[in-house]
Every structure is written in C-alpha cells, then in structure tokens.
C-alpha cells in the first residue's frame, strides 16, 4: 500500500465518512419502507418517501401474506351504431381469457400477455375504492382511459362492420378450486361485477394503430 500525503488523507477520510453516512441513511430508509408500519416509520414518513420514491420503490410481498387465489377475469363488450342509426350490443369478449391462451405453452410469456391487462386492472381497482362515500383519486381517470385503450386496441375501431359507440367492462373473480386432498368447499363460479358504459371517441384510439 502507498503512503498517503496529508491532503490525500483528509480527502479520503471526508469521503469515507460521507459515503458511510449516506449508505447507512439509504439502507435505513429502505428498511423502514419495507418494514410493517411502526412508530419510527410514521415519524419519518416524509423522509423515507423522499428517498424511496420514485426510483427505489420496493414491493417484495410476492405471494404474501397469501398468494392470489382467484383468476380475475376481465371481459369487455361494445355497442355499435349502424348506418341507419340502429344500435347493437355485441357479445362479451374475454380479454383475460385471451391472455391465458397466449401464456399457455409459452416458455417466455410476453409482458403484453402476462402483465399489461392484469396490472391495468389492478391499477383500476386500486384507484376505484368501492366503499360507500369513497372518492376516486386523481389517478382514477388515468386508469379508466388505460383500461379502455387496452380493450380498444384488441377489439379495433369497428365490430361487425359498425362503428363503436361505447364500451363496457365486467370483471369476475373465479376462485381457484382447493387442492384435491383439501376438505374445503368453495364455489368456483365467477362473481361478476359490471362497470358502467363508457363512451368511445376518436381520441381514445390515438396511437393505437
């Protein structure tokens, strides 16, 4: 090892202290972010958030506390208008079912099939609280537009040769049947929830080509 001059020693010592302190604070923030909410993380929430968001976000509750036990099926249908003004409601399209088919027998499923709609629905669900009196946050509109555009990209501009007027979603949670040896009895019938009809206009197609 070399012999350091005094200025070099000063520079290195200051840098070492700074780096050690910075690393310690960063790791402490990460820890408080992933730990269950506690007195310390409540007290320093603003500081922790400032470190963690937006680039060091962590979500490691993979399959925890419980793994997802339902297949959340998102379907969509459209209403079209004919040249003579007649309005037709089309059949439901199983968007999630299309994803499942694309994942099947695919050793490396695309994010388009595995994550796009799945996480868009999670986003919609998270931004649309269902309790009485709950108000949808500012991101709710983004989630609606995103979901609508995902469906329209798959369905196209027309259905049955007619222009699309509006679109409706329904979501059904189909509980996974318990393992064969389990004594549990659960209903695996989907429990559908319908969303309101949303108007479709030219803007919704921007960039979907």
């Amino acid at each position: 090892m070399r012999v350091w001059s005094v200025p070099a020693r000063v520079v290195l010592s200051v840098a070492a202290l700074g780096l050690a302190a910075g690393t310690a604070l960063f790791l402490a923030a990460l820890f408080l972010h992933v730990a269950p909410e506690n007195a310390v993380s409540r007290r320093y929430r603003a500081e922790v958030d400032a470190v963690v968001y937006p680039e060091f976000e962590q979500n490691w509750k993979l399959f925890a506390p419980n793994p997802l036990q339902q297949n959340v099926m998102v379907d969509a249908r459209v209403q079209t208008i004919a040249g003579d003004g007649r309005i037709t409601t089309r059949d439901w399209t199983g968007l999630t079912a299309q994803d499942f088919a694309a994942v099947r027998h695919n050793p490396a499923p695309s994010h388009v099939d595995q994550n796009l709609l799945r996480r868009a629905w999670d986003f919609y669900d998270a931004t649309h609280p269902q309790q009485d009196g709950a108000v949808a946050g500012p991101r709710a509109k983004l989630a609606e537009e995103y979901l609508k555009r995902i469906a329209l990209q798959r369905i196209g501009r027309t259905a049955g040769g007619e222009r699309i007027l509006q679109i409706q979603f329904r979501v059904g949670a189909r509980t996974v049947a318990p393992p064969p040896w389990s004594p549990e009895q659960v209903s695996t019938d989907p429990d559908y929830r319908e969303l309101p009809w949303w108007p479709v206009n030219e803007d919704d197609y921007r960039g979907l080509a």
């Binding site: 399959f63 793994p67 997802l68 036990q69 297949n71 999630t96 079912a97 994803d99 499942f100 994942v103 099947r104 027998h105 695919n106 050793p107 499923p109 595995q114 799945r118 996974v176 049947a177 393992p179």
Partner: peptide, 12 residues
C-alpha cells in the same frame, strides 16, 4: 404453493 400454479397468468 398450490395456488399460483393454478392461476391462468402463471401456468404455462
């Protein structure tokens, strides 16, 4: 472990 194996998104 049984459940993720029976989700359509994660059972190729």
């Amino acid at each position: 472990v049984y459940y993720p194996l029976h989700l359509g998104y994660f059972s190729p």
